[in-house]
Simulated assay, not measured.
Amino acid sequence: MRFSRNATGTLFVGGALTLTIAALAYPSMLGVSTVSSSPDRIIAQTQWGPLTEGDRDFVVKVRAAGLWEYPVGQMGLQKGTTPEVKTASAHLIDGHAALDTTCRKIAPMLGITLPNKASPQQQGFVNQLAADSGKKFDTDFANILRMTHGSIFNAIAKIRSTTKNRLVRVLAEQANATVLDHMTVMEKTGLVDFDQTIFQQTTPPKLPKTDLTPPPPAAGEPEVVLTPPPTSTTTPPAIPAK
């Protein structure tokens, strides 16, 4: 199944690109009343180690990232005007398909509910790029994706260095390599405005939580699968049985 684009969101706030690494979760489904108010709080004891709010939110964030970056990669293959933009687009598809495979494997093992749609803000990025063409598409593509990956890079390192859950650790290692690769290919387009990008990725956005959280899947809704491309060179890591 390919991702369908049917959500709405906001890309520009106050004339600037925005993103957040705010926590994402579905407290009503998980029997908790807060959304990462205490990232270190243990919400489940599993055979792979304790699962914290921060661990759970990280798995959801990785899934949500793929739900908008994968279709943007498909878009870039069609609309990109330079070889570098098309290469970066292929990396998005390949990397997020592999991450998605890992997320969908470990989520049920840990009792985590995954979204089937990106957050409204993330869908706003998709909508913006869908409206772009030519050089503007290339430039917005490179800067949006470099900014979003830069924003999450440090969060991945924190999860990897602090989680006690082996499955989350596997995902964090995979995400670290993937995000570094995606940052690098965006930079190789030669289109990244580093001053603006770094400012945006270090400035907290002023958006309501509803814009930053992907909606939970409807009851009985088929799981969206990000299909690896035929030319995939990325192999998802082995998942420990216990």
Rank of each mutant, 00 (worst) to 15 (best):
L17M: 14
L180F: 10
D140Q: 12
H91D: 12
F199T: 08
I198R: 12
V59P: 04
V225W: 04
Q45V: 04
S133N: 13
H96Q: 09
V59W: 05
Q74H: 15
K209A: 14
E187P: 00
N116V: 03
A142P: 08
T10S: 12
T148N: 06
G15L: 08
T82R: 08
T227W: 02
A142K: 09
R166Y: 01
L11R: 10
Q74I: 01
Q45P: 02
P237D: 10
W68E: 02
F137A: 00
C103I: 04
S28G: 02
V185Y: 14
L114S: 11
M109R: 15
A98E: 06
S151A: 15
G134S: 06
T210N: 08
E187Q: 11
L167F: 08
A118N: 05
N154M: 13
A90I: 00
L99F: 05
A16P: 02
A238E: 14
F137G: 00
A155T: 05
A44K: 15
P50R: 11
T148Y: 00
T189W: 05
W48Y: 13
Y70I: 01
A25K: 00
L171A: 06
C103L: 11
I156P: 04
L180G: 15
Y70H: 10
S161E: 13
M75A: 09
P108S: 14
G49A: 05
L30V: 04
E84A: 15
V13S: 15
A90T: 01
T87W: 06
L226F: 04
V170R: 04
T102A: 14
T46V: 06
S38L: 07
G111C: 10
T52H: 09
G76C: 11
N116D: 04
V170P: 07
I239F: 08
E53V: 06
K188S: 11
F153Y: 13
D94Y: 13
Q47H: 06
I112A: 02
I239M: 07
F12A: 07
T210H: 05
D193E: 10
P205E: 13
P120H: 02
T197N: 12
S4M: 08
D40I: 04
F125L: 03
V185A: 03
T184E: 09
R160A: 15
L77C: 12
D195E: 12
Q123C: 01
A238M: 11
T184Y: 10
L191N: 02
K209N: 11
V35P: 01
A98P: 09
T52E: 07
E84I: 01
M1G: 11
P236E: 11
I21M: 09
L212C: 02
F137V: 00
T234S: 11
P120M: 01
T231G: 01
M186T: 03
A90L: 07
L114K: 07
S161W: 03
P83G: 13
L114C: 13
P240G: 13
V126C: 00
P205W: 10
K117M: 03
V224W: 04
T87E: 14
M109E: 11
S37D: 15
L212V: 00
M186S: 09
L145N: 14
E173D: 15
S232P: 05
Q128V: 01
A118M: 09
S33F: 03
K242L: 11
V72R: 01
A157I: 06
T178G: 02
R104H: 10
F125A: 01
H96I: 01
P115A: 14
V72L: 07
D138C: 05
